[in-house]
Design a protein around this nucleic acid. Structure first.
Lengths: 145, 145
DNA sequence: GAGTGTGTGTCAAACTATTGACATGGATGC
DNA sequence: GCATCCATGTCAATAGTTTGACACACACTC
């Protein structure tokens, strides 16, 4: 009955499976909005903390700052974000959302929210919090290099 | 106290964070063995079910069969796997592990196992099973397209 | 003040992965 | 039998990502 007893690593592949499927489902929902998952993550982080720098954005998305840069260029060309051409204290250019992005995010959040809701459909509210707490403990244990 | 109440989507980013960190830590440990995480996953799947086909391997690793093909070519050049040049019933070429791969996997499994062990360090055994069960329910809910 | 270190932005090259397309060999329909 | 459909393997082109490198700006130490 227990896959964990046979091989403890299976929790790792389960995390990978779940993340991969979640990514796939989100991509299905975001494609009609012409948004990729990394783009959505970027815009959301930008909404949470406006004026954030590109490098910090990259760190939160777990990608290199070069990748985040080309991603931002695409968003800038579409008029979703604007980067201050004026250099900051550390040669950094702050990025902010545009009105079009706020509007687009409203729909995107609904789509993503419905996917997450479906994911946790079979998990009661109390257990949902428990799952979050246990998984957060796993993440924190991996934070130190 | 509860991030889930404020935004239910945070479970999604938590899964992403945990998976990304786990991937990073595994990569750190596997690099000395000259193995990438996808390569390790491929070899492990090959160990679990020998003679598997390349396409099936790709499905389990959540990548396209073209990617798995180039990955296999690299492993074949290193003498870790051998693909039967003799075409199977459906024009498929079965892949099997080499002795060198079995030897390499022994060390790799130890490394990965230690990473997973560290990840679940702060979670008691009983709760570990609970976490697995809850997360599996989430994965299953996403299985249907 | 000079030197060192860290963080940011950007360029180029290399690598990895996906998409699209095609031929082949079986299976399944009639 | 024949047509259709599904699955595999492979090729080419494209997109996305990482690695390595450099310049610049600030903070820190001595």
């Amino acid at each position: 009955m227990d896959a964990l007893d046979r091989s403890p690593e299976s929790l790792g592949v389960l995390i990978k499976e779940t993340q991969s499927l979640l990514n796939q489902r989100m991509d299905d929902r975001l494609r009609p909005l012409a948004l990729s998952v990394p783009q959505y993550a970027c815009l959301t982080a930008l909404q949470d903390t406006p004026g954030i720098t590109s490098s910090e954005l990259a760190r939160r998305a777990f990608v290199s700052r070069q990748s985040m840069n080309v991603l931002l260029q695409g968003l800038e060309k579409r008029g979703l974000v604007t980067r201050s051409s004026d250099p900051g204290p550390r040669r950094e250019r702050s990025v902010v959302l545009n009105d079009a992005a706020e509007l687009l995010l409203e729909r995107a959040h609904e789509e993503v929210s419905s996917v997450v809701q479906r994911m946790t459909m079979e998990v009661e509210l109390v257990e949902r919090a428990r799952l979050y707490e246990l998984l957060a403990r796993c993440r924190d244990a991996l934070l130190i290099p």
